[in-house]
Simulated assay, not measured.
Amino acid sequence: MATIDTSSIFSIATETQFVEQALQTFRYQYQNNNVYQRFCNLLKTDVASVDSIAQIPFLPIEFFKNSTILSGAGIPEQTFSSSGTTGSLTSKHAVLDVSLYEHSFRKGFELFYGSVANFCILALLPSYLERSGSSLIYMVDDMIKTSKHPKSGFYLNNLDELALTLQQLEANNTKTMLIGVSFALLDLAEQYNLNLQNTIVMETGGMKGRRKEMIRQELHHTLLQGLHTSHIHSEYGMTELLSQAYSKGKGLFNCPPWMRVLTRDTEDPLSVQPHGKTGGINVIDLANVHSCAFIATQDLGKVYEDKSFEVLGRFDHSDIRGCNLMVL
């Protein structure tokens, strides 16, 4: 069975290097991922002629709910799972080499924010803590341990303690990052009079059925008002990926060099949209070398000339096109 060199993934510095690595990964995954190979074959993909990113098929993210998506052989070191409503199918991401995930989130964070050791990390992620298998909890737990700040830690529903800790850290001018799920950050913003001038507030999305869904602009406006901070940052990641994009404000995300977002036509899932036009979000995550690096998500968004992107919402199931190939 063929192998692939993963050592160059995190040293990508140019567009040419990215494209070369993406094409190499595509060919490897076609040869070594049964589900992806069958998907490409049903699309009648001429693998030998694929010489650009636009020609690579993107696997619908729903496949992670009913198939094990693995490229290569081996026993997974970790299996991450998504949250879901009772009785619904959840996504499962079998990770053969968890060190790739660790390398990806550590280097990605450092590129955007510098060393995590310079921060006190506070995590307000109750819906994730209340279940097992969360890749976000795995990442944030590593950040908390790496920060080594005595106040770093998880907060379940103890908002009083969290608010007091934030006030103490602010009084000491401590560089702090508060990572929280949207509904819990809204609870914090509404119940406490905080003034967070030394704290980066990062929302990870999701009301998880706890509150009515809000568009990002409305959510950020409410958080800015309630927490008295200059910007609301965001993290864009998911169970099926091993890399994250970050926004430092206004909902505009940027990817690390080994990750890329494209958009597809909602009526023609095999086409790539031009810059600035709304479409379904496709993600290339080259750290996902042992599962699938080319994923068609259920998110809607726009990509701009500088490769930044924004997330505008999600497809309704009735809007998803081209997923009749799910019956592999």
Rank of each mutant, 00 (worst) to 15 (best):
L169Y: 00
Y128M: 09
K208T: 09
Y36N: 04
L42A: 12
H233N: 13
Q78K: 11
G87P: 14
I232L: 10
D46E: 15
V95D: 02
V311F: 03
S234W: 06
V261I: 07
L223G: 04
R106K: 13
K107I: 11
E15S: 09
D160P: 08
T266H: 13
D268P: 06
M139S: 08
R211V: 15
L43R: 15
P57Y: 14
K148P: 06
G313K: 14
A287E: 04
A296M: 08
S7M: 04
C40W: 03
E190Y: 14
Q167L: 12
G87D: 15
T146V: 11
P60I: 02
A184F: 10
R210Q: 15
L300A: 04
Q24F: 12
H221R: 14
P60H: 03
Y246F: 11
G280Y: 01
I121N: 11
E62W: 04
K212D: 15
I56K: 02
G249L: 08
M326G: 10
Y192M: 03
D51V: 14
E213F: 15
R27V: 05
L59W: 10
G206R: 07
G74W: 08
I295K: 02
F112A: 05
S230I: 08
Q273N: 12
L178N: 03
I12H: 02
G276E: 02
I295F: 05
Y304F: 09
L42S: 13
N34E: 13
K277C: 01
A189D: 13
I179V: 11
Q298A: 03
L270S: 11
S291Y: 03
Y138L: 05
I281E: 01
S152R: 04
F119S: 09
S318F: 10
L252P: 00
W258T: 00
N66Q: 12
I53N: 15
G249N: 10
S308N: 00
H220P: 06
H221D: 13
R216G: 06
Q168W: 11
P256E: 07
G72P: 07
F26G: 01
E203Y: 03
I179G: 01
S115E: 15
Q197I: 11
Q168P: 05
T86L: 14
C120W: 02
Y36H: 06
S135Q: 07
G276T: 02
